[in-house]
Design a protein around this nucleic acid. Structure first.
Lengths: 233, 233
DNA sequence: CGTACTCTTGACTCTAATCAAAGTTGGTGG
DNA sequence: CCACCAACTTTGATTAGAGTCAAGAGTACG
């Protein structure tokens, strides 16, 4: 079925906030790479434990990771999904408030937070990029507040799919391969696994998307935007 | 009743992330004050409209304000409450994604975002402070994600009271005067007015707090922390 | 003193969670 | 290569927590 679905459209929306280490920016991180250690991790392995002393920062090179906060009774909230080029941990104070776990096998660069501090003080250009990164994080966080505080289950799911479609940007067209399980999606969206399934089913029935496990095709981007209460960008 | 309630305790928790313009830091903003305009606004007046071009930043001097996102159908999410010393708007890209409204009559300093950019580039000390501020914002935002994504109504309310108690730090003891209405609290916590009332009533019945309109006394801080799922700091 | 507003409480509804069970899929080993 | 197993996903039935609707109480203000 999926092999026969033609690419529907290329994105007309503006470029998403670009990761700090995207192709065009890779050079600004060069000084850090000198002191960086490459780390490889298997699926579901822990990269940073919640509460770890925050000595290091991480730059995700390949794969997908999730940041996680676990409550004492086991309730779990996924903070964000990290994709290649995403930086984690520079904003820690004394310790990492969220843990980091591999969603797929991942490769990361690990370097001391002090190295980042030094670079920021020395390199005005890098400092500006880091500022832009912070601003993007803060704004994205606020968008999540609206999602978690005021959107319905189905709206959250639609918004999530749009976000992922923008960020993953696979080879061809509107098909996206979601690296994370339904459980991860649920904990990201403040829902349960079952509700995520039902929401996807509802969007499928409405003809907005096609779903097959982790592969999702956006059939009607406009309708998905409406379903997610995303004002047209 | 409230006049007879003795102060219960002083806070034993660590200092909260300090606003950038608190007494000790006031000096670093001096260069900005030269180009700043003082703005005064009445209760419920709009200070920044959602979607305004982001030419200015604001430093709240006195009173309380809320940042607000309105969805097309009228659903509302309060992003944060701004208290004296809080900075708003530096993180905007092209436009302010949230509006700002006065909760009480407020005084603010308004200055061009470009002035902040300049200061940041020139003053390493200030840049570091701004970085600390961003980091604090990001961490606070993540805490909110857990609150909105995974906590029950009553837990959200308990967490909120603790946050406000820390930030407002009134003259005497455990009594806090909340400047915002139940509606503002509800939109901050992703709840309805009625649910906020019921949650407060529940905490009152449990003997954890005393409530009278906007005046709230924390009778049992430990129990409130437990009710809010706040791991002991 | 009256009016308008906010807050509180009650009754009922509805969305999403929970509990339960039946498909799917992919990986492993025979 | 195929069968089996464990994990994940999907769907269904029921429950619970928060939302909605409604009415009344308390306050602040003119």
């Amino acid at each position: 079925m999926f092999a026969t679905v033609a690419p529907i459209a290329t994105w007309s929306s503006p470029v998403p906030p670009r990761p700090i280490a995207g192709p065009a920016q890779a050079n600004v991180l060069e000084p850090l790479k000198a002191v960086a250690v490459t780390v490889r991790t298997d699926r579901d392995e822990e990269i940073v434990a919640q509460g770890d002393p925050a000595r290091h920062c991480y730059l995700l090179v390949s794969g997908c990771a999730r940041t996680v906060k676990l409550m004492e009774d086991g309730r779990r909230q996924v903070g964000e999904f990290l994709l290649p080029g995403d930086l984690f941990g520079w904003e820690a104070l004394d310790e990492h408030d969220f843990g980091v776990e591999a969603v797929t096998p991942v490769t990361l660069l690990r370097f001391p937070r002090s190295a980042l501090e030094t670079l920021v003080d020395r390199d005005r250009h890098f400092a500006r990029q880091l500022r832009a990164l912070s601003a993007g994080q803060i704004r994205a966080g606020r968008e999540r507040l609206v999602l978690l505080g005021r959107k319905t289950a189905c709206e959250r799911i639609a918004s999530f799919l749009l976000e992922m479609a923008q960020r993953i940007r696979g080879e061809g067209g509107a098909m996206i391969g979601l690296p994370m399980s339904r459980a991860d999606m649920a904990d990201y969206l403040g829902l349960t696994i079952e509700t995520v399934c039902r929401g996807l089913a509802q969007l499928r029935t409405a003809g907005v998307i096609a779903v097959e496990r982790s592969k999702i095709v956006i059939l009607d981007r406009r309708a998905l935007g409406v379903a997610g209460c995303e004002t047209v960008h």
